[in-house]
Amino acid sequence: MAAVGRKREAWRIREFLDGLGMCMADVARDLGLSRNLVGETVKGARNNKKVLDYLRELGCPEKWLDLPEAVKARKAA
């Protein structure tokens, strides 16, 4: 079974942020997290819930995020 996040489309997420006039450093600053953690989450190496929730709130398409079930469930609740 493939790990969740491995199918995350990092380049599309970066393009989405760029379209908003943002970069991953802006996300890190807005959330009070390290740029490294945000970068690893966008690449799919980590699944930080704050980062994923924030990207969803910004309107990033979920199909690009390859969300873990725990994050998907919070949206439904």
Results as ranks from 00 to 15, higher is better:
A77T: 11
R35G: 11
K75M: 13
E9Q: 15
G21A: 05
K49F: 08
V71M: 09
P61Y: 07
C23L: 00
R46A: 10
L20Y: 03
S34R: 01
C23P: 00
A25K: 11
A10W: 01
R29T: 10
R74A: 12
E40G: 09
P61T: 02
G19W: 07
Y54P: 07
A10Y: 01
R8A: 08
D30T: 12
L33R: 03
T41H: 03
V4Q: 12
A28V: 00
F16A: 05
W11D: 12
M1E: 08
A2F: 11
R35S: 06
K72Y: 06
G5E: 07
L31H: 07
W11A: 14
A45W: 12
L31K: 04
K72N: 02
D66E: 07
C23R: 15
E69Y: 06
E15P: 01
V42K: 04
K49S: 13
K43R: 15
K75P: 04
G59A: 03
Y54G: 01
C60V: 07
L55E: 00
F16Y: 13
V71S: 02
L20P: 02
L17F: 09
G21E: 03
G39M: 00
G44Y: 00
C60T: 12
E57C: 08
L52D: 02
S34L: 01
E15W: 03
D26V: 02
N48I: 12
G39V: 04
N48F: 05
L31M: 08
E40M: 15
L58S: 14
M24C: 06
V27P: 09
R29L: 07
L52I: 07
K63F: 14
L52E: 03
K63P: 02
R35F: 00
D30A: 15
D30C: 05
C60A: 13
M24N: 09
L65M: 10
A2Y: 11
V27I: 14
R56Q: 11
E9P: 00
A76C: 06
L37P: 00
K43A: 12
G59E: 05
C23W: 07
K7I: 02
E9L: 12
N36D: 13
K72A: 06
N47Y: 01
A77S: 13
L31S: 08
M22T: 01
K49P: 06
V42W: 03
V51A: 05
A10C: 10
K50E: 15
D26K: 09
M1R: 08
V42A: 02
R12I: 02
Y54L: 05
L65N: 11
L52R: 09
G59K: 02
M1T: 07
F16K: 12
K50T: 10
C23Q: 05
G21D: 01
S34T: 13
K7Q: 12
G32K: 04
V4R: 14
R8D: 03
R35E: 06
L58A: 09
G44R: 05
A45Q: 11
P68D: 04
L65R: 10
E57A: 14
D53P: 02
I13M: 10
M22G: 08
D18Q: 09
A77L: 14
E69L: 15
G5Y: 03
L31T: 11
A2V: 15
E9R: 15
R46L: 13
D66R: 07
L58K: 14
G5D: 05
A77R: 15
L31R: 00
A25W: 02
T41N: 04
D18G: 09
A25L: 09
